[in-house]
Amino acid sequence: MPDITGLTEVLAATAKHGGGPGALLRIILVVGIVGAVLLAWFLLRGYKQD
């Protein structure tokens, strides 16, 4: 069974600060977009003509 204590700690921290689930979803969205941009940059870097 996977260890999800990190996720539960994040959920507890966002609920404690009054952010609710909206804050967590916003963080996930930003991390996903940044990750997609970095992945695209890394993949497209290989097509560069020297």
Rank of each mutant, 00 (worst) to 15 (best):
K48L: 12
V10A: 11
M1H: 06
Y47T: 11
I33G: 06
V37S: 12
V30G: 09
A23H: 04
V31G: 05
L7M: 11
V31I: 11
P2W: 06
M1A: 13
V30H: 04
K16Y: 09
R45A: 15
L24I: 12
T14G: 01
G46S: 10
G32A: 12
A40L: 15
F42H: 05
F42M: 07
D3T: 01
R26H: 04
A40N: 03
G19K: 02
I27C: 08
K48Q: 10
L38R: 11
G35V: 05
K48Y: 07
W41C: 13
L43M: 13
L38F: 14
I33P: 00
A40V: 14
A23P: 00
G19C: 06
G6N: 06
Y47M: 15
L43G: 08
L29M: 13
R26S: 12
W41A: 15
G22N: 11
Y47C: 06
R26N: 06
D3G: 02
A15V: 02
I28Y: 01
G19H: 00
Y47F: 14
K48G: 14
L43H: 02
A23T: 13
Q49C: 03
I27W: 08
A15P: 00
G22R: 10
L44A: 14
A12C: 00
A40M: 07
I4N: 03
R45D: 10
L7K: 11
I28M: 15
Y47W: 10
P2H: 10
G46F: 04
V31D: 04
L7C: 07
G19A: 12
D3S: 06
T14A: 13
K16L: 12
G6P: 00
V34E: 09
V10H: 03
L25F: 09
V30M: 13
I27M: 14
D3R: 03
V10I: 05
V37K: 02
V34I: 15
I27S: 11
M1W: 09
L25R: 02
I33M: 10
P21C: 04
D3M: 01
G46W: 01
A13W: 01
T14E: 09
I33Q: 01
G19F: 02
A23C: 03
F42Q: 09
V34L: 15
I33N: 03
A13H: 03
W41K: 12
V34W: 02
A15R: 09
G46D: 08
V30Q: 07
F42T: 07
V31A: 15
G18C: 14
I27N: 05
G22D: 05
T8G: 04
L44C: 05
A40P: 02
V37R: 03
A40D: 07
L29K: 14
W41F: 13
A36I: 15
K48V: 12
R26G: 12
H17Y: 10
T8M: 10
V37Y: 03
G35A: 14
A13L: 05
